[in-house]
Structure formats: structure tokens, C-alpha cells
Nucleic acid binder design. Structure first.
Lengths: 185, 185
DNA sequence: ACAGGTGAGTCAAGCTGCTTTACTTGCCCC
DNA sequence: GGGGCAAGTAAAGCAGCTTGACTCACCTGT
């Protein structure tokens, strides 16, 4: 999967700051623009940094061609499985898109389509052992990444952050079920 | 821009719970799954809910075909402008993609390409009045959305959330400049 | 002065992952 | 037993990015 003309990484130089001349800035952090950035973008940056680190490590762990959306699908299907339409709803995409994702995962041995117990035209999509194995690995990696991030922070616990986020989400999405986490913006 | 087969919205039913059998759950909120959701996904959900509300209102305000990436570009270009390569770097995409975005915005009258003062083959991309006008509108809308979200939360101030996020981002992206906010995951 | 190198910009083609349109099929129900 | 509904699927379209290959302006060294 070579990327010859890599999207510029905004992180090329190793120069840590630029104005870190000793004695010019008393105590507060250097030229930090973050406090001026809107909450929405802070959320986006944190999300993408975390997710990027996660998917990078998952790829290294032997799953180079499993995108985040596949992991989301696994989480939805874990347990009793689901139909592709239910999957579509949880993923926030059309049922055709969900069907394509299921096709893909089926071809690669991560899911199986079974006759649905409730009958009808429905088919129950369930995870194979390979998928459960992946879920275990990915879960461990995700918790590692989050734990490392927490350690890198001053506060030793990200629990308050979590509860504040939960409140924010409930305020924006009052109806009970989890909001979908869509594959694009 | 009709969406005949709308991506299912994960919010169809109004049924609040499903397992709200009286007497099974003592005092805490109903079947709230959020506490079990990983931090990374909480961030993603909050981000997408906020951004979705924002872009919806921006569209209603007369900018139906300006995507989030365009707003990001405007923010980068605001002030002294930038070259497309610099824009590419801040957006985390290839310079060709940045060039296409600039083409598009130029065609629609939001930016202009000027000869770059530093000469060379460089061109300075600067915002037109239309873009500055949009920035004013979008900025107001974004702050409205965030303020409403804050009001919907118990805590009357999202400042602590902001600082925790800033710390988290710095932990994940130690080098000074802002991390790019890429248009996809 | 001129060969080589470098970096910005751009043209053209390709591809991925989603949507749109349109259809088939099983079941329920009066 | 036909009408309606919901699940699934097939095929085409398309937006928005990447890859590849090139041009052009400037700088450098010898």
C-alpha cells in the first residue's frame, strides 16, 4: 500500500517549538494556539489523533486492511449479530453500503450470513472466530493507546473527561440510543 | 440535493429505552450505554454531532455547498493567505487535492490567486470578501451551537472540557503546530 | 555561464467507498 | 389472494481523494 506522494504530514520538522528561548516564557506552555481553537475542532483533533494511532497499531498487529468502519461493524455485530439493515442504521449509511461492507467482510472470512431466526427475507450476520480474535486484539490496543494518552496528560485519570463528553453527547442527542459514528464527515 | 434513500438515521424510533422495566434499575439514568463506550468513540460521537449540527445550520444560512473542509481552508487562509502547498500541509492532504479545493473555491468566488511576494513559482491564495463574510456567519453559528450544547449540559461551562482536551492533544502531538484535521478517517 | 537540483504548481488518470435508482423476494393482514 | 411493507441485492454513478508524470522558476556550485 505504498503512498508515493504522501499527504503532507504537518509534522515533518522535529523542531519542538521555535520560541523556546530559555527565559522568555515564564511558566505557561510555549506558543500554544490550542486555547484559541473552538471546542468542535479540539474534539476532532483529539479523535483523529487517537484513531490514527489506533489504526496504525492495528495495522502493524496484522490487520492492515481493516478500516475503522470494519471495527465499528464488529462491535455492532458482536453478541447476537444483526441484519445488514440494522448495521446500516448503527453505522449511519445506506443499507446498500452496509451490504457491501458485509460482502467484503464475508469474503475475507470475518462474518457469516445465516438464515434469520425471525424468518422473512432477513439474514443474520454473525462474527466468525477470526473477527472475535480481531476484537480482542483491537480492544487491547485501544485501551493501551488511551492509557498511554492518559499517562501523557497531567491529570492521571481521564474519567472526568469521559463523563463530560457523555453529558455533552446526551445534550446533543437526547434520544436514548447511541448516535452513529459515521465513516466520513 | 435530494437523498431519496437516506442513510438511516439511527434515531428513528422514539422509544426511550426498552429495558426500563420498573424496579430493575434503581436510580441512575436509564439504559445509558455511554459509560461503557471507549473514550475514542465518545470523542468521535461528540465531534460528529457538533459538526453535523454546525454544517446543517451553515447550509440553511445560505451556504449549502460549502463542506467542512472549505471552512478549514478558510481558517488557514485567513490573515495573510497561504500557498496551496501550505494549505495541503495544514489540511493533511496532497498538494493536488489542495489545488483542486482552491480551484473550486476560486470558481465560486471565495478565493483569489495572487502572485506571491516571495516570487518563484509560488502563488498566494487569499480570501475574497465573500469568504470573510462566510467566516463571520460560520463563526457565529459555531459559537451558538457550542453555547447551546454547553447549556444543555449540567455543567454551565465547558472550559474544563476544553483544557482537558488541549492537554490530551498535546500529549498525542507533542510538536508545537496544530495537528491537521483531515477530511476523512 | 551553464548543468543539476529543488520545490511549487498542474494536468490527467485511477480508485475507493459511498449514494442513487431500480428491482426481487418473503411475509403479513384485512 | 392481492396490496403493502420491509429486507436484501444488483448496477450504475459520482465525489473526492491519490498516484504518476510533467512544467516552470529559482538557486547553487564549479
Amino acid at each position: 500500500m505504498p503512498r508515493n506522494q504522501e499527504p503532507t504530514n504537518a509534522n515533518s520538522g522535529t523542531e519542538t517549538s521555535g520560541n523556546n528561548v530559555p527565559g522568555t516564557e515564564p511558566t505557561p506552555p510555549p506558543n500554544d494556539q490550542l486555547p484559541n481553537v473552538e471546542l468542535t475542532f479540539l474534539l476532532g483533533m483529539a479523535f483523529q489523533l487517537l484513531l490514527g494511532e489506533f489504526t496504525g497499531r492495528v495495522a502493524e498487529a496484522g490487520y492492515p486492511d481493516l478500516r475503522p468502519v470494519h471495527g465499528m461493524a464488529f462491535q455492532v455485530l458482536r453478541g447476537h449479530g444483526a441484519t445488514s439493515s440494522e448495521l446500516a442504521e448503527r453505522l449511519g449509511v445506506t443499507k446498500q453500503a452496509a451490504g457491501q461492507i458485509v460482502d467484503d467482510l464475508e469474503k475475507r472470512g470475518y462474518v457469516r450470513r445465516q438464515p434469520h431466526p425471525a424468518g422473512g427475507r432477513r439474514k443474520l450476520v454473525v462474527l466468525t472466530d477470526a473477527a472475535h480474535q480481531h476484537l480482542a486484539v483491537a480492544g487491547r490496543i485501544l485501551h493501551d493507546v488511551e492509557a498511554e494518552a492518559a499517562r501523557g496528560t497531567d491529570q492521571q485519570d481521564l474519567a472526568p473527561l469521559r463523563t463530560e463528553l457523555a453529558h455533552l453527547i446526551r445534550a446533543l442527542h437526547p434520544n436514548a440510543p447511541l448516535p452513529p459514528l459515521r465513516p466520513v464527515w
